[in-house]
Design a protein around this nucleic acid. Structure first.
Lengths: 192, 192
DNA sequence: GTCTATACTAAGATAGAC
DNA sequence: GTCTATCTTAGTATAGAC
């Protein structure tokens, strides 16, 4: 049984951090968005950074799960990478405010918390490298720099959070389809 | 004749904002990095936001110039886009701290300053769309969504600033070459 | 153009009642 | 578990001497 107040505070903090940045957000602002007094924050979260870590952990875990589940779909390397990129872009578009916080406020975490998050990030990059390597092995992808290319493919999705606004020119699904297509085209062998 | 102190403060602010975020940076920190007292800041910049705007303006102008000059190189659409992406990625890698500030602290600007910067951003995206459109016209590129694809191509470069560290695994030139190759591959027509 | 000193405001976090 | 009230610290910005 979880306490709803704890989650309401996390949600309020996501909005505030995404809008104003972690450093510029006050605990009073978070409390007021959650409909509570400033003091109530500290019943549920020891510090402001604790709130940031809760957001970052939940966000990275969700994104990693999304990527992992998408990797299980698709029988061929092309289908697998397309599925991963599509799902990853849709996730970042549908959770663009959470995404902005987890991507841009990494440096505001304590060293201990940073280490936990860095490990999740490494696992995401590893998932993509594995998918690319499989395609190279089967001869359907041509990749010079595996690490750099995997990072570039993920960049298409991650960079969404910098500018995406719900209700804008593209839906999450449209962006997912566009990025999946572009990613596969990046990987296909050059014509001889 | 410019005052060196003004520029020293801007440079100090770039370091501080990139490291801690705009909201979490104190004017005392900026002053101390520039080797001055807190009061000296206000002789050269009216407010902390004024410093941010100076950084953002200079950064966006430099990036736009880089993109424009690169677009003049290359006789064919493929060479032109490769030149633009290479130069844009090299710029973001060589100025990753400035890039981080200008990309991530856009929302911290005043509405008036935001409008100025937004205009420069629109012009960058327009430059890339023009380059893609030229290739489509000549039949060497196949692009479904011009706006989305131009943004995705630029994302490869911009997203560098999120993780790039000087002295890391890749040099700016290596990343420029990688991204130029990936961008051109994204645009080439699918095999029939 | 830089300093020391400080006014003024607001931040993070806690105490103690209910 | 939430509140009001408040402690303590630190922030932005300014005044006035040099």
């Amino acid at each position: 049984m979880s306490t709803p107040a704890r989650d309401r505070l996390v949600d309020a903090a996501v909005e505030a951090f995404a809008e104003r940045g972690y450093g510029a957000t006050t605990t009073r602002d978070i409390a007021s968005r959650a409909g509570m007094s400033p003091a109530a924050v500290y019943v549920h979260h020891a510090t402001k950074e604790d709130l940031l870590f809760a957001i970052s952990l939940r966000g990275h875990q969700n994104a990693l799960t999304t990527l992992t589940e998408a990797a299980a779909h698709g029988a061929t390397p092309v289908e697998r990478v397309a599925s991963m990129v599509r799902a990853f872009s849709v996730w970042h578009a549908e959770h663009s405010r959470t995404g902005r916080v987890v991507q841009y406020e990494f440096g505001a975490l304590t060293p201990e918390h940073r280490a936990v998050i860095a490990d999740l990030r490494r696992r995401m990059e590893q998932r993509m490298r594995d998918a690319l390597a499989k395609g190279v092995d089967e001869g359907v992808f041509e990749v010079g720099d595996l690490r750099g290319t995997a990072r570039a493919v993920l960049s298409l999705s991650v960079d969404l959070v910098r500018w995406f606004e719900p209700g804008g020119a593209h839906t999450p699904e449209e962006l997912g389809a566009l990025h999946a297509d572009l990613a596969v085209r990046m990987l296909r062998p050059l014509p001889a």
